[in-house]
């Protein structure tokens, strides 16, 4: 198992390297100089480019950049004149809070709805839950967020939709982020849970006279949870890319909003730095989920 974990880590490192290389050259491919603006002369641009080392051959720049990244320096946002790492540190708390809350909500509500759907005898409730799952999987994230803003923010005026100043402000963005993952998780849990319900050990547990809750959580769910844990990796990726839209729609000062505004300002170095950061977070998250799966389920021996 140790060997496979080392292999996974090596792949992770290789991925990181490829990501940095590809994003670096793509960003350098982008048209125009990062310093181009209306009132900046060509001489100014030339001297600025010299200051930031952009007049050197591309390969030298690349080596220099790699060296910097290895030292934890993701460069400087030329447009905002502040280091990318500082911007990440500033945006991280908001993104993390929303992301973690949405993640928890998706896991708890998704698993709950999945169990409910698998064990209910009412056809009506089952139909309702199935339609929710289909809806949640089909609706693009920004559509959900916009609908929430229109209904709760504009029509009912029940909840605030701008910023993150009070606990109430968290409700809509977290729901908007969790809406899709809840549907996916409930689908997964429903299928694995109803499969596990058929097992002999469940009948056995029932015959022993265990309570409904004990059977459900200790015996069935424990055996049905693995696909959900495997989904945690993609879920983290989904929440991070989802934060692009949710944060800019709800004006939350997080990394996603920073990324979107960097895109529309054509702030190339910031896009480069944030891409590498987000990619890195997702690579590490996937790695951890892989290892977690092996710990949770001793049947997995990592033999692919």
């Amino acid at each position: 198992m140790l060997k496979t974990i080392i292999k996974r880590i090596l792949i992770g490192v290789a991925t990181m390297f490829v990501l940095i290389t590809v994003t670096f050259f793509l960003v350098r491919l982008m048209p125009g100089s990062p310093f181009e603006a209306e009132n900046v002369s060509t001489q100014m641009i030339a001297s600025l480019e010299k200051e930031y080392g952009l007049d050197q051959p591309l390969f030298n720049q690349y080596v220099l950049y790699l060296e910097k990244v290895l030292h934890g320096d993701l460069g400087i946002s030329y447009k905002k004149n502040i280091s990318v790492v500082a911007l990440i540190a500033r945006g991280m708390p908001a993104t993390m809070q929303i992301g973690l809350l949405a993640f928890l909500m998706a896991a708890v509500v998704g698993i709950g709805l999945g169990i409910w759907q698998a064990s209910t005898k009412s056809g009506f409730i089952r139909g309702l839950l199935v339609s929710y799952a289909t809806l949640g999987v089909s609706l693009p994230g920004f559509v959900t967020a916009l609908l929430l803003i229109v209904v709760f923010g504009a029509w009912l005026q029940a909840l605030p939709v701008v910023g993150l100043t009070s606990p109430k402000h968290y409700i809509l963005p977290v729901i908007a982020q969790a809406f899709g993952p809840i549907a996916t998780i409930s689908r997964l849990v429903k299928s694995t849970y109803s499969e596990a319900m058929q097992m002999d050990y469940v009948t056995m547990a029932r015959a022993k006279g265990l309570s409904k809750w004990q059977i459900s959580l200790k015996h069935i769910l424990k055996n049905a949870i693995l696909p959900v844990i495997t989904y945690f990796g993609p879920a983290i990726a989904f929440l991070l890319t989802g934060s692009f839209v949710v944060e800019s729609l709800f004006s939350i000062p997080g990394i996603g909003k920073e990324f979107v505004s960097a895109i529309s300002n054509r702030d190339y170095t910031l896009v480069l730095g944030l891409s590498i950061f987000i990619g890195g977070v997702i690579i590490i998250a996937n790695l951890l989920v892989d290892i977690l799966c092996a710990i949770v389920d001793p049947r997995i021996k990592f033999n692919d």
């Binding site: 792949i11 994003t23 890319t241 895109i263 190339y268 896009v271 990619g279 690579i283």
Partner: peptide
């Protein structure tokens, strides 16, 4: 391995970078 490496990064990042470059 190539597949693993491309798959590990969310596709949205590639798409955004390529859109900006091209």
């Amino acid at each position: 391995r190539v597949v693993d490496i491309i798959y590990a990064v969310p596709s949205m990042l590639y798409v955004i970078l390529i859109m900006m470059a091209l």
